[in-house]
Design a protein around this nucleic acid. Structure first.
Lengths: 231, 231
DNA sequence: GGGAGACCTTGATCGAGATCAAACTCGACC
DNA sequence: GGTCGAGTTTGATCTCGATCAAGGTCTCCC
């Protein structure tokens, strides 16, 4: 397998600020990997000590109870960072929602490299703080919002997240987009059942708030109404 | 107001690894402040740009909806870090649950200082990663656990958190402890109503799983049962 | 383009937890 | 000690979302 050069080039967020010799060093450590939709990102080492960068695609981070209930606790988009440097194994498991390409690093190598490159640690810190903010906002949704509010908030969030996937100028939220989630996965993000999600989608459609041209496609017809519903 | 020297001494987590001149520089930036139970930690600057370290006491981080529903999205114990360096204002508001002492820094000063001291940024990163792990585990609770499971998980979590508040050798989880939360605040942590929390406490008491000598005091009688209930 | 199966929608019913309402407890303060 | 009031418990009822149970639809693959 060749060094994962494209991931360090594409992943501006992680690598910005490193000058060239440092990028070269990071690139020799990373290995590119593809993961098909539905496949887990299996950590190759026995000790489960890997970290990764998303190059392309969307992955979910989930935790489950012993009896099989699942909660999606995070979603990783291109340029996002996956894994848990500097500590015990993260409890979450990672599964690709779409075909994905990632750049994988051994955790030990990555940790050592990060310690030697403060600029990388700084980027990682900013990114982790942002993720924590987002996660806390989601706690509000899970603990206190009703099903209609959850669905509306979810659609607005997806609209924002899927807007700036490309590299162009920030174009604002997307009016139409393709969900990387099945109905069950939407339920697992929102702490609902698949039936409730389906009913809420149907209601939004019949109220003329959204159009649903296909199972995965969403077109927002009345953003104001969604924002009102989102609470 | 004098430089906040005790906070940097006591807060090993933030300051470990900095050699003495650096500690001196940090200590000139921080100002000690006390906050009474129930009082918000009001950010003094107009632009709400402060960060802080907890020296003593417990504080809650909350988000609220427009119509007044509240969710506690984090709890800060001694040595924990509060605030949002390197970015826009965090959405959460901070209120002391007990009388508290904190060490406050101007965000700009702190940011600049952190950028110049990679060891501090590293500590901050480890801490933020741990907090993210904890927050994600809480998402599972909020999204997928039943009221009895939530209460049991909460009590076990409190037992762990309140155990190593002191500086002695790690003594394992506490068998009895004083909750820093009112019933309403427990409800706000767990995404329940106060009535449901009260009923679950009463049930655990009459089942002999816990003793409740006073409103705020808890004694765990049957930890195994709690762990079973926690799911 | 036809069949199979995964995924999704819809309907009927149920129940956990919310809501509404009232009594009780405990500590603070006079 | 008595009173006041916030905080808590307990009870009755209601409701939202879960659960149970069919159908329906899209897509993949031959």
């Amino acid at each position: 397998m060749s060094p994962c050069d494209t991931c360090v080039v594409r992943n501006r967020a992680i690598c910005a600020g490193l000058d060239n010799p440092e990028i070269a060093a990071l690139s020799t450590m990373g290995r590119r990997r593809t993961v098909s939709a539905g496949e887990p990102l299996i950590w190759e080492d026995d000790d489960s000590l890997l970290v990764a960068n998303v190059i392309e695609g969307v992955l979910k981070l989930t935790t489950s109870t012993a009896d099989g209930r699942e909660q999606i606790v995070g979603v990783a988009y291109p340029s996002d960072f996956i894994g848990r440097p500097f500590g015990q194994t993260s409890a979450a498991s990672v599964v690709a929602l779409t075909d994905a390409r990632v750049c994988v690093f051994s955790r030990n190598d990555f940790d050592r490299f990060a310690r030697e490159h403060p600029e990388l640690e700084h980027k990682l810190l900013e990114r982790t703080l942002s993720e924590l903010d987002r996660t806390r906002a989601w706690m509000m949704l899970l603990g206190r919002k009703s099903a209609p509010e959850k669905i509306a908030t979810f659609l607005l969030d997806m609209s924002d997240r899927l807007a700036d996937n490309g590299c162009g100028p920030h174009a604002g939220p997307a009016r139409q987009f393709t969900l990387p989630f099945s109905r069950q996965q939407v339920a697992d993000v929102l702490g609902l059942t698949i039936e409730t999600v389906s009913r809420q989608f149907t209601k939004l459609k019949s109220d003329g708030v959204v159009a649903l041209p296909s199972r995965r496609d969403v077109e927002i017809l009345d953003r104001g109404a969604l924002q009102l519903l989102a609470g």
